[in-house]
Amino acid sequence: MTNIVSFAARRAARPAMGATGGLVSLLSGFATGRRRQGDAWWLKENAELLMVLSALHHDVPEAALAVYQPFHDGLEDQLAFHPQYYRMMLGVAVWLEDLGQPGDTAARMGARIASEGWIGMEVNDLQRAESRFLMARAGQAVDLPGLDARLTGFMSRPETFALPNPRAAYDLLHAVFYLSEYGRRPLHLPKAAQQSLHVLGNLAWLEQNGDLLGEVCIALRYAGLPVPPLWLGHLHRESAAFRIEAGVCEDSSDAYHNFLVNRWLMGTMGETAFGEDYPVGPMRFSLVRPLISPLREWSQALMALGGRREADYPAMRRACAGRLSPEALEIADGAMAEGPEFEAFFATFARPVLAHGAVRKGA
């Protein structure tokens, strides 16, 4: 494949930012204009925004951080009352102070979390990995023997990620984020884990899911792997399609997360991130998406074949063509021609059937 975007060539690049006033409006809108300050949705959105800015190593003006000062001052009391949210609260403190908020609140929170053993309440390795990473940023080393090996084992089963499974997709990508410390340290994944990222990227491409595809591309960057031009071109086109409007966000279904991921990716590529002029006060994000879902069309067409399903894409294209829109065919054909390891993805996605009726595992 030619024209692959090189991680090494771009790694030191710094993204361009919009005017200081734009960033002040953006952070103020998230801190005071979209959710009730301190509730779970507010913590999620603001932790994500601040994390992205930190991961991009941006210098955030004091005026942009000042809106968080009252919440930052009360974080330790919040933590004492809501220990179940300790990861999100610690994350907000870590990212704020990383971006220049004065104080050592994160260190004190980390010390309390360590002394009370709150990591012990976690039920899965991904949550433990996030806790370990945030605690390290807060100055608290956490020893979790075997964690990296278990995460690597999970990531190294590509067939897991060839079928729609939001939980598995989220865990794969965030394992990469935590192990690479959001791009702060080199990450050398085994070949099988690299294939998992490519397989998940093909699934996201077939779904035309820019949110998921953007995170896959960021994970590829953090793993030192090239970003396929096919995927990046789609995300560049989507980048220009976001609409940011003044007004209250009435529910959780707007496109803010797609927007954050898209700008995060552009920043990791050394391109402009958060360069818009944002409205003052509440804001909402929208993205016009195509009405068709190639992933759904392909799933339904393959299921209709019953025992005639095979792992071979050309054969299944011929068998399914009558049930597929031209767009669904074009998108899959593009992946076959330009996507990395599309055949490996399709070998599982097609769920080929053996003679006795059992579904054969993908190659």
Rank of each mutant, 00 (worst) to 15 (best):
T2S: 09
V5W: 10
V5A: 10
A9Y: 03
A9S: 10
P15A: 13
M17N: 05
G18A: 02
A19E: 09
T20A: 14
V24E: 07
V24P: 00
R34S: 02
R35G: 06
E48T: 14
L49F: 02
M51V: 02
L56E: 08
E62H: 09
A64M: 03
L65H: 03
L75M: 15
E76V: 13
F81I: 14
H82N: 11
Y86Q: 13
R87A: 11
M89E: 12
G91M: 11
V92M: 10
L96T: 05
G100I: 06
M109A: 11
R112D: 09
I113L: 14
G120N: 13
L126Q: 14
F133H: 11
M135D: 03
A136N: 10
A138T: 05
G139V: 07
Q140A: 09
D148T: 15
L151N: 09
G153K: 07
F154V: 05
M155G: 09
F161P: 04
P164W: 13
A168L: 11
D171N: 15
A175Y: 01
F177V: 02
Y182G: 01
R185Y: 02
P190Q: 06
K191Q: 14
Q194L: 05
H198G: 02
L203N: 01
A204D: 05
W205L: 09
E207L: 02
E207I: 02
D211R: 08
D211W: 01
E215N: 10
A219V: 04
G224I: 01
V227T: 13
F242S: 08
V248M: 12
D251E: 04
D254W: 06
N258I: 00
N262F: 04
R263E: 15
W264D: 01
W264F: 15
T268D: 04
T268R: 12
T272L: 07
D277P: 00
R284E: 08
V288N: 07
P290L: 08
L291D: 14
I292A: 15
S293H: 11
L295R: 06
S299V: 06
L305D: 03
G306R: 04
G307N: 13
R308I: 01
R308D: 06
E310R: 09
M316T: 03
R318I: 04
A319P: 01
G322W: 06
R323P: 00
L324T: 08
A328Q: 03
E330M: 13
E343D: 12
F346G: 01
A347V: 02
F349V: 00
P352E: 05
V353K: 07
V353H: 09
A355K: 10
G357R: 13
A363W: 10
